[in-house]
């Protein structure tokens, strides 16, 4: 009876404060998104080169360039351009590419999901292998699996992603022929890019899992478990690992956003038809409406991911749950 009463109170209070926390975080997010949109808009307009001249071509006359400038709305004051841009944005119109003349939204449709899959697969690799290496290192502390695990972890953090990608292509695509060298056709084409992208976070998670698990293994309840005669195969996964996962999951979540940045480089190495490669292509062509839309989308994704992690963490961690 007492137990259920406590559980109810705990749940109600917990849920309420978490809800308050979520609402507070969303309200905090709005001005940041607003400022980010202003910054991106104004800064992309600082990119050198005249977009109207770019569309019209090198041989176009002054009048032709002026007409195109008018068509694109570039003759209006910059704040007016911003208001129009934001108005269109809320209606789902991201503008038109200067290079292809296609609506940017259409260009994103085919590229957005492959990029999302790529980051998700990378995170799966990172979690599975990172947790495994970290756990083995902690269990066999100061023995060869620990040394091997930690050497590979510190190496993984130091590896340039683009170099690792090229080496994987050389070994697994060119020499062994197991996976395609690029593109996004079928699951096989995701294996190497996602491994490359996840390597850094994998190493980071291995190190965090190890130190977090070592800390938990010192706790009294582990000693009690062992004293009761529980097997190590139960103590480690059921008691220790479960309790040391909160900081590891938080780090994984926070790093998820950084995968978005890393994807730009990895997609270029693997000629992967995703958002990252489109950004680099647009920069080389100075296709500023695409650059603008890409940067905005990346930052929204990043902010959203961090928000979700914060919310999950606030629910997992009682300290935040009660002080939010």
């Amino acid at each position: 009876m007492l137990k259920s009463y406590r559980a109810k109170g705990f749940f109600r209070k917990g849920l309420l404060t978490v809800l308050q926390y979520i609402i507070k975080r969303i309200f905090e997010m709005i001005p940041i998104l607003f400022i980010v949109s202003i910054l991106i808009f104004f800064f992309t307009h600082l990119i050198p080169g005249d977009p109207a001249r770019l569309v019209a071509g090198k041989d176009a006359t002054f009048e032709e360039v002026a007409t195109i400038r008018e068509e694109l709305g570039l003759d209006k004051p910059i704040w007016e351009q911003y208001v129009t841009y934001m108005g269109n944005l809320f209606q789902g119109d991201l503008g038109t590419s200067l290079k292809t003349g296609l609506p940017i939204m259409d260009m994103f449709v085919d590229r957005f999901m492959p990029s999302i899959y790529l980051t998700l697969f990378s995170m799966v690799w990172a979690l599975v292998i990172g947790l495994l290496i970290g756990t083995l290192s902690a269990v066999f502390k100061n023995k060869w699996p620990d040394y091997l695990g930690m050497v590979s972890a510190v190496s993984g953090i130091s590896l340039p992603g683009f170099w690792l990608g090229l080496i994987l292509i050389q070994i697994f695509s060119v020499q062994l022929g197991w996976f395609p060298t690029g593109g996004a056709d079928g699951w096989k084409s995701y294996v190497l890019p996602s491994l490359t992208l996840g390597a850094g976070i994998m190493s980071m998670l291995a190190r965090f899992t190890r130190s977090s698990l070592l800390e938990t293994l010192k706790a009294d309840f582990i000693r009690t478990g062992r004293a009761k005669g529980l097997k190590e195969s139960i103590v480690i996964p059921k008691h220790a690992l479960r309790n040391s996962l909160i900081p590891v999951v938080t780090i994984a979540g926070l790093q998820f956003g950084f995968l978005l940045g890393g994807s730009v480089v990895v997609e270029t190495v693997f000629s992967f038809p995703g958002m990252g490669r489109l950004l680099i292509d647009s920069i080389s062509f100075r296709d500023y409406p695409v650059i603008q839309a890409e940067l905005l989308l990346f930052s929204i994704e990043f902010i959203m991911v961090n928000l979700v992690v914060d919310i999950l963490y606030s629910y997992l961690n009682p300290k935040i749950r009660y002080t939010a």
Binding site: V36, L39, F258, V265, L295, F302
Partner: peptide, 9 residues
């Protein structure tokens, strides 16, 4: 606001 962008991006 600066943290709203991944580093390399």
């Amino acid at each position: 606001v600066m943290f709203a962008f991944p580093d390399i991006l």
